[in-house]
Design a protein around this nucleic acid. Structure first.
Lengths: 141, 141
DNA sequence: TTTCTTGCAAATTTTTTGCAACTTA
DNA sequence: TAAGTTGCAAAAAATTTGCAAGAAA
């Protein structure tokens, strides 16, 4: 389902433009980490520009709308920050990404322990907890 | 201190060359995530080649000697897999990296929960648990 | 001597920048 | 209309590839 992201965009201090709504629509619809190239292909018929997409991704990340996800792939992937709390298991060979539901309490506990140790931060805006291994299919090969 | 990594290199099926020992020496000595360019500068007087460094990093990652670390910077950083178990807190503005000692039991628990949920993996070779926020210095600005 | 490694040059890919034209508020 | 956005062209930066020469086992 495509939500209307106008409020979120405006709330973060951006002007509401079609492409920004489109980009967030794709994130909301696809529910997986995506990169600039992917967005470009989806929006190609709308004559979008890759440069604009890059700029949008960077600015949305700075404002906490998107977060980077490191899939150990060639380019940078992003996800909605406000997504359902989950983590990734990534196959080191085929790079396929599987989600799993991390227990929010568990990771919150780890974060509070970290903040007690490190006095350079007041708070944490988001975190990554990703597992890397070789999936069963690739192990067989 | 610089350890001798010859055995590790040979054990993973590589030939023991000076540059491979040098690269692992740097990782062992510096104890922080580093990228190809950094290694290149450290070894510059030895007339090293960036291409060789890239190839070494990629092959060492595949064999589980190194792991990628995503610092949300321009290039790819690596760390020794066999390092002391720790995690990172990264400032989204200045990109400075702070370490903290994650409790190994806690993250092992999360990993076992993940493996129960997801049946596509038998085991996990390594994981990332990194926190992102804005450090106190950058908050003041 | 066989196999793996390295270096060089060049290519590819991803991401960024400058600037003028265009939109949103 | 003022301030922020976009598109185009071009540049910059990071990483990869092919191939011949060199080094390890």
């Amino acid at each position: 389902m495509i939500k209307d992201f106008s409020y979120l965009i405006k709330d973060k201090g951006f002007k509401v433009t079609q492409i920004r709504k489109d980009i967030l629509g794709i994130f909301s619809n696809d529910c997986k980490p995506i990169n600039a190239e992917y967005i470009y292909k989806v929006l190609k018929n709308k004559k979008t520009n890759l440069v604009t997409i890059y700029r949008t991704l960077v600015s949305f990340e700075k404002e906490g709308i998107l977060k980077r996800v490191d899939l150990h792939k060639e380019s940078v992937y992003y996800e909605l920050v406000d997504d359902h709390h989950h983590h990734h298991i990534i196959c080191l060979y085929c790079k396929k990404v599987y989600n799993f539901n991390g227990c929010k309490e568990d990771s919150d506990l780890l974060i509070s322990k970290a903040l007690k140790q490190n006095k350079d931060f007041n708070s944490i805006s988001h975190h990554s907890f990703d597992l890397f291994g070789i999936c069963k299919k690739c192990s067989k090969k």
